[in-house]
């Protein structure tokens, strides 16, 4: 996030983390990262509403559906990781999850806490170094789908995860590039997950961290970017796709209950709308059940005990996993 990106992508982490965490309190905490995400917090509080699912759940489910079985997916933490894991636990069991920490073919049973979560390494087909994951695997064109988030997106799906305001005296310093620019450049296609608000969907990015379609047709080729670029922008309101001729984002789907006016109001430029706007199928009970189970799956132990660490207790463990409770955690600063 960063969007992985979160991991991959950067702000994505911020934005995505907020999305990832269902409760209002935690959302509140993470949102501070990006002003862009601030508005989203309010949205999150409308949780469930009358629909039986939240806008973020709709967004995550829509993203998961976009992933076909067998897809090799570069995953960032937060919403992209949730979507990818939901897909792998439902219709796409042979999907290959690649995290920028170097874990290839990770098969986590619970949602990872970060792109470098130990469970990713423990369940991976292969663990490689960070230089290798970017050079041999991403740069060489071995990744089908990259997921990105952002604090800002423009009409050509370029992304900002660097600063809001002036670069030298930013009003908000965001995490930065992370893996995002090369994910945007080199994956065969890119799916962007971002909440749709006037603060995220902007006329002019404060900083172009990752390239979607640049200033329009021909720019990706001119820059030597080998992937196709963004194919889907999935928001909490609907789904946008680039127009093949102009490379400008066009609204093609609205989520159930979302009006066209709401989507227009949430967009900082004159939103292009498809002739036929369809309605995204609502999350099915199965999808919601799997998604919520994933989120509720037990994570690794994390205690606040002040007992001293006992590394030797773990020496007989060959899997790298320490059973819950065997090693008291000492909270060191």
């Amino acid at each position: 996030m960063t969007t992985h990106t979160d991991q991959a992508a950067a702000t994505a982490t911020a934005t995505a983390t907020a999305m990832d965490q269902g409760t209002v309190a935690r959302t509140d905490q993470a949102t501070a990262t990006a002003t862009a995400a601030a508005a989203a917090a309010a949205m999150d509080q409308t949780a469930l509403g009358g629909a039986g699912y939240t806008p973020d759940e709709m967004m995550t489910v829509a993203a998961a559906r976009a992933l076909r079985d067998g897809t090799v997916c570069f995953v960032g933490i937060g919403a992209p990781s949730v979507a990818a894991n939901l897909a792998r636990h439902s219709h796409a069991p042979t999907m290959v999850l690649v995290y920028e920490s170097g874990t290839i073919g990770a098969k986590p049973t619970a949602l990872p806490l970060s792109i470098g979560d130990g469970e990713l390494a423990d369940t991976a087909d292969s663990v490689v170094s960070v230089p290798e994951i970017f050079a041999y695997w991403l740069q060489a064109g071995r990744i089908d789908v990259g997921f990105l988030g952002a604090a800002q997106i423009d009409r050509h799906a370029n992304l900002n995860t660097t600063v809001i305001g002036d670069y030298d005296r930013p009003s908000t310093r965001l995490p930065g590039a992370g893996g995002a620019p090369e994910i945007a450049a080199s994956c065969r296609q890119v799916i962007i997950l971002v909440r749709q608000t006037p603060r995220t969907f902007v006329q002019q990015l404060a900083f172009r961290t990752s390239v979607g379609f640049g200033d329009g047709p021909g720019d990706r080729e001119r820059f030597g970017l080998r992937g196709r670029g963004p194919t889907l922008v999935i928001t909490d309101l609907g789904i946008l796709r680039p127009d093949p001729a102009t490379c400008e984002l066009v609204l093609t789907e609205l989520h159930p209950g979302v009006t066209l006016a709401a989507a227009r109001d949430a967009t900082g430029w004159e939103l292009q709308v498809a002739d036929q706007v369809t309605t995204t199928p609502a999350p099915t009970p199965d999808e919601l059940r799997t998604l919520r189970a994933l989120k509720a799956a037990p994570r690794r132990p994390s205690t606040t005990s002040t007992a001293p660490a006992a590394p030797r207790a773990a020496r007989h463990i060959t899997t790298g996993q320490v059973p819950r409770g065997t090693v008291p955690d000492r909270r060191r600063p």
């Binding site: 806490l113 970060s114 979560d117 130990g118 390494a121 423990d122 994570r299 690794r300 132990p301 994390s302 205690t303 660490a309 590394p311 773990a314 463990i317 790298g320 320490v322 090693v327 955690d329 000492r330 909270r331 060191r332």
Partner: peptide, 13 residues
């Protein structure tokens, strides 16, 4: 700590 060391302790999230 509070990051983790595989085989020794988990991340203190």
């Amino acid at each position: 700590r509070p990051s983790y060391a595989s085989g020794y302790y988990h991340r203190d999230n």
